[in-house]
Write a protein that binds this DNA or RNA. Sequence first.
DNA 1: ACATTAATAT
DNA 2: TATATTAATG
Length: 307
Amino acid sequence: MREEDSNWFSKWEDELPSPEELIPLSQTLITPDLALAFDIRSPADFHQQGQQQQQQRQNQHNSSAPPPPRQLNSTEFESSAADIGRGAGGGDEPARTLKRPRLVWTPQLHKRFVDAVAHLGIKNAVPKTIMQLMSVDGLTRENVASHLQKYRLYLKRMQGLNNGGVSGATAVFGGGLVSSGDPVTDHLFASSPVPPHFLHQTGERPNSQHFMPYMPPAVALHQKQMAEDAAAGGSMLPQYHHHLHRRQMGHFGSPLSGQFEHHFLSRQSQMGGPRINSGIVQIGGFVDDVDPANGQKFLSLFPTGDD
DNA sequence: ACATTAATAT
DNA sequence: TATATTAATG
């Protein structure tokens, strides 16, 4: 009997799956949403990670989803995930299809966008570059591209309005144009002043007082108020000023924005409907993650007294 | 490979 | 409605 026992034991051991055949539980058991929220990604994705995310990391807390959108290089991950997902035929779409939550363009985030564009000059302001300059955690090129597309349409419409002279509802604040072109459509865009040179057809206009291809690694803790800067016409990027001083509250760049802020706030509740946190993420949402009923007012970006 | 645009999907 | 995605094109 002893011999049988030892035989049995070795056989048993032989038939254990090799490590390669084992399925990575951490990935298949975690729902896509959780994976995104907690920054869990496939092992294969780790080595391909760039600097971008490091520097962007602390930008905002409530942002999520750094993982590369679609580029799952890991065949192992894909195949194993696929294998599991198929089997049951239950409605269980696997982690392979991870969709990152929709980005919400808060006025703050949009402002960053505008500032980035302003600094790059319209000529150089392409999605990738803008994205880099914004250095917002989790922000993708496509996020920016989509937004840029809309923003350009907005600018175009606005020129048309100004040239056509039909609307008199344009005013200048702090060197920035604030227009109510379309009363309802443009809340977001109107929340940040449009640098005047955006409207003219000047092909190129790098604001190269201090150009800034990349940022010093040490300054990872940036993010701050550029409100006055942009308004003052001297737009500067966060990276270069150590200030990290963010205005916690109330009004954004433009005097008018107070109104809009409300709209945004309420809008969010509406959009989210029953499940506010379900699919929507606010990258760079600082102030507006508000539930008035809750008494919870503001999430400060990060500790305001960083200076 | 990326950018742009229009159209369409969620 | 706002944002994402896709397809065509440069």
